[in-house]
C-alpha cells in the first residue's frame, strides 16, 4: 500500500528538494528568498524552450539553469546591491517570471525527458532524483564542516563577523542567491522534464512549499530535504485519493505543520539571526 506511493513521493519531492536546498543557501547567507517560485518556473520554461530550440535535452537543462541564475542575479542586484526590501523583490520576481513565461509561452510540443537510470531494488528514475540525496549530504558538509560554509553562514548570522575578517558580506550573499537560482532552476527543469510540456504557472506554489520545507527543516539541508520527502508523501496520498480523506486537507497539511513548527509548539525553528537585515 505504502510502497505503491514511493514513486509518486520521489517525483513530487525532487523539485521541492532542489528548491529547498537553494532556499537554504540563500537564507543562510541572510537573504530572504520568496523568488524560488519564479526561479523554478523560469527553469522549467528554459528547459522546454532550450530543448525545443536545440533538440538536445542537455542544452535545455543548461538553458533552464541559466534562466534560474538570471533571475537570481536580478534578485541579488536588487536585494544586496540596492538594499531593496527582499520580500517585495521576491514577489516582484515571481510576477515577472509568470509574465515572461506567459508572454513567450512555448508551443505545446512534447519535449524529451531527462535520462532515467535503472537501479536494482529502487527502480527507474530520472538521474536528478538520485542527485538530490547526494547534494543534500554534500550541502550539509559544505555548510557545516568547511570554512567556506562558515563564511556563508556568517553572512546570515552576524553583519559584523565578516567585516571583522575584512570579507565582503555582499559577495557571500551573491553566492548564496546564485546557488539558489541554480538549484531552483534544476528543480524546474526536472518538473518540466517529467511532464514533457510547459504550461502557464506550472509550478503552482511549489516554490512557496519549498520555502515552507526550509523553515520546517530549521534551515538545515538534511532536515529540509527530508521535509520535502514528507511533503511529497502528503501529495502522493492526495493524488492516490484513497481512505476518504478530503484531498484539500492533505494539500494544506504541509502549510499547517509549518505554521505549528514556526510558532514553536512542536520543536523549534530558528532563522539565521540577520535574515533580511541589510544595515550593519
Amino acid at each position: 500500500m505504502i510502497l505503491e506511493l514511493i514513486p509518486t513521493t520521489l517525483r513530487m519531492a525532487t523539485p521541492l528538494g532542489f528548491a529547498a536546498l537553494g532556499g537554504i543557501y540563500s537564507e543562510r547567507a541572510g537573504v530572504i528568498n520568496l523568488a524560488l517560485e519564479g526561479m523554478m518556473l523560469i527553469g522549467a520554461f528554459g528547459y522546454v524552450v532550450g530543448t525545443q530550440g536545440s533538440g538536445s535535452i542537455w542544452i535545455g537543462l543548461l538553458i533552464g539553469i541559466a534562466c534560474g541564475l538570471a533571475l537570481a542575479l536580478l534578485h541579488a542586484i536588487a536585494a544586496v546591491t540596492f538594499h531593496a526590501d527582499q520580500v517585495v523583490t521576491g514577489i516582484g520576481i515571481n510576477i515577472l517570471a509568470l509574465g515572461i513565461t506567459e508572454y513567450l509561452l512555448p508551443i505545446p510540443k512534447q519535449v524529451g525527458g531527462l535520462p532515467h537510470w535503472e537501479l536494482p531494488l529502487i527502480g527507474s528514475y530520472s538521474f536528478i532524483v538520485y542527485l538530490l540525496p547526494v547534494l543534500m549530504v554534500a550541502s550539509h558538509i559544505l555548510l557545516f564542516k568547511t570554512p567556506w560554509g562558515l563564511r556563508l553562514r556568517a553572512a546570515g548570522e552576524s553583519t559584523e563577523a565578516l567585516a571583522a575578517l575584512s570579507l565582503s558580506r555582499a559577495k557571500w550573499q551573491y553566492i548564496g542567491i546564485l546557488l539558489s537560482g541554480l538549484l531552483a532552476g534544476i528543480g524546474g527543469c526536472f518538473l518540466a522534464s517529467e511532464v514533457h510540456y510547459f504550461t502557464k504557472g506550472m509550478t503552482a506554489g511549489r516554490g512557496y512549499l519549498a520555502l515552507a520545507a526550509v523553515i520546517f527543516g530549521n534551515w538545515r539541508p538534511l532536515s529540509g530535504v527530508s521535509t520535502c520527502f514528507l511533503f511529497g508523501f502528503a501529495t502522493a496520498l492526495e493524488l492516490a485519493n484513497r481512505w476518504n480523506i478530503p484531498g484539500q486537507l492533505l494539500h494544506s497539511l504541509p502549510y499547517i505543520l509549518t505554521m505549528v513548527v514556526l510558532v514553536g509548539f512542536v520543536g523549534t525553528s530558528r532563522p539565521p539571526a540577520s535574515l533580511g537585515k541589510m544595515k550593519s
Binding site: L74, A78, F82, H83, A84, D85, V88, T89, I91, G92, I93, N94, I95, L96, A97, L98, G99, I100, T101, E102, Y103, L104, L105, M278
Partner: peptide
C-alpha cells in the same frame, strides 16, 4: 500581444520601485 507582457512589466515595476526605495535609504 499576449497579456503576459503586462505581468512581466508589473514585476519589473515592483523591483524598480523597491530598488529606488532601498537605495534612497542606504
Amino acid at each position: 500581444i499576449p497579456r503576459g507582457l503586462f505581468f512581466a512589466g508589473q514585476g519589473m515595476l515592483i523591483i524598480w520601485l523597491v530598488g529606488i526605495e532601498g537605495i534612497s535609504k542606504k
